[in-house]
Lab assay of single mutants.
Amino acid sequence: MAAGGDHGSPDSYRSPLASRYASPEMCFVFSDRYKFRTWRQLWLWLAEAEQTLGLPITDEQIQEMKSNLENIDFKMAAEEEKRLRHDVMAHVHTFGHCCPKAAGIIHLGATSCYVGDNTDLIILRNALDLLLPKLARVISRLADFAKERASLPTLGFTHFQPAQLTTVGKRCCLWIQDLCMDLQNLKRVRDDLRFRGVKGTTGTQASFLQLFEGDDHKVEQLDKMVTEKAGFKRAFIITGQTYTRKVDIEVLSVLASLGASVHKICTDIRLLANLKEMEEPFEKQQIGSSAMPYKRNPMRSERCCSLARHLMTLVMDPLQTASVQWFERTLDDSANRRICLAEAFLTADTILNTLQNISEGLVVYPKVIERRIRQELPFMATENIIMAMVKAGGSRQDCHEKIRVLSQQAASVVKQEGGDNDLIERIQVDAYFSPIHSQLDHLLDPSSFTGRASQQVQRFLEEEVYPLLKPYESVMKVKAELCL
């Protein structure tokens, strides 16, 4: 049975990233139509530049190519590739079939990587351009969430054990800070992308030097003109047959890092959902379990974690691919890159769409948070109580021993009897502590235990987050809708 299948058929496997999760716009960027249309555009740009620099290419040939950029006979191309065992030459023939007058000058002087690699770089750039505003929107939604809850005390956790208090907004800023680093890295790697350009079979530009009869300047002009037509500021000066596969490492490393950030955020949300302090959106008709109707599973956060793990592992592909590119190139890269580049971007696209949807509907339960604080705060307040007693004339050592005994009794009630923490009640009825009984409410005010959390939130948002989001103001209103 021949390899390949009808990918629109229910009898043929289709990647869930495309069929179930990723956005239509990201799927289109990695589609065959987008790819092969870009090949034709690159052939047109090459012909236009070659004509401008004096090669015998007519206006009629150029116009014929322009008129057929979208006229792609995919069936013919597939048949040609089956016959020739070469995808680029299959599309040269297919393009030439609908451009008979231009057929002889299509791909003039070029090698397969002229269309293959340059198209990949265009796709990487455009895919990054799709991700950047999506990530900015996630940051914006979380920034709104953090600002609104900047002063809401909550129990902090280290080692997932109760620690000092923080605020809900401050905790959210930990998430935002990681995503801001990801946004900066995505922008950097996007701006650092260079075009492969017009380089020939081993990167020496020998074929173009021959076409222009040894004119170095025209060869350099050709490279520059096509690079500018493709919208790049610069091209690699040095290439082998391909652009260095280190570029793929750079791009997928940034995406993998984004995956790590999203995994951490969504894990926190899942843990908070278990504590009943916070939940992701839950639709009115949504079913959490087929057997347990009360369940409210954090399905979206779980999906993000599941896909983020996949995204983090994909960076190993370009690392290994770059390491086995012998001399000017081997074909070890080809099949692998067809999979890992598309999957990385479709996965990143999915987790950003999902995280935006989550961040637009996060639900906080202040009463649950308050109750958990009441359970733990008495123990945390013991040092403040000791200091207040010393100020009232008591002995630190005597007070410490009193607190120690009462704390152990209260802990026994919590752990052995399943009761509430009654340390404060014990202190309130103990005559030894009568000098500070009137101060206990103040000493137990949760806001006095959150330090500068709310001020940190305000400063972080104003100095770091809002300036970073400013270039994306025009796209901030787009909502994230999930079908599944």
Rank of each mutant, 00 (worst) to 15 (best):
I139T: 11
L482N: 05
D32N: 15
E283S: 14
L17Q: 11
N274I: 02
M312G: 06
Q164H: 04
M476S: 15
L252V: 14
G231V: 05
A163V: 01
I123C: 14
A78M: 10
G54K: 09
F433P: 01
V168N: 05
L84H: 06
V189H: 06
A146E: 00
E425L: 10
S434T: 13
N336Q: 06
D398H: 09
C173N: 06
L252T: 14
A3Q: 15
G116E: 01
P446N: 05
L131N: 07
V315G: 07
T154Y: 03
T167Y: 01
T242E: 06
R245A: 01
P10F: 14
G393A: 05
R270L: 06
D11R: 09
L152C: 13
I62M: 11
L272E: 10
G361Y: 07
F460D: 02
C266Y: 05
D6G: 07
Q416S: 09
Q439V: 10
D191Q: 07
H437N: 07
Y21N: 01
V262F: 07
K134I: 08
C180T: 10
T227R: 06
R404Y: 13
D73P: 11
W39R: 00
Q63V: 10
N421W: 03
L271F: 07
G4H: 15
E360H: 09
A2I: 10
A78N: 12
L142V: 10
F145L: 05
S257D: 05
V475I: 10
A348F: 04
R371E: 01
R303D: 05
V364E: 01
G4S: 14
S207Q: 03
R337L: 04
Q375M: 12
M225W: 00
P10S: 14
A411W: 06
C399R: 02
G394V: 11
I351Q: 07
T111D: 02
A348K: 01
E70A: 13
I373E: 03
R459W: 08
L42E: 02
H91Y: 07
Q455T: 11
M316C: 08
Q241P: 00
Y294M: 02
G288N: 01
G8L: 15
S323E: 06
Y13G: 08
E481V: 10
D182R: 04
A78R: 12
A335C: 12
N185D: 05
W43N: 02
K187Q: 11
L331W: 01
T382S: 11
L440E: 09
R141E: 14
R125M: 11
Q375V: 01
I369V: 10
F95G: 00
R459L: 11
V390E: 07
L211V: 15
Q458W: 11
A2W: 06
A235R: 08
D32K: 15
S323I: 02
S289E: 07
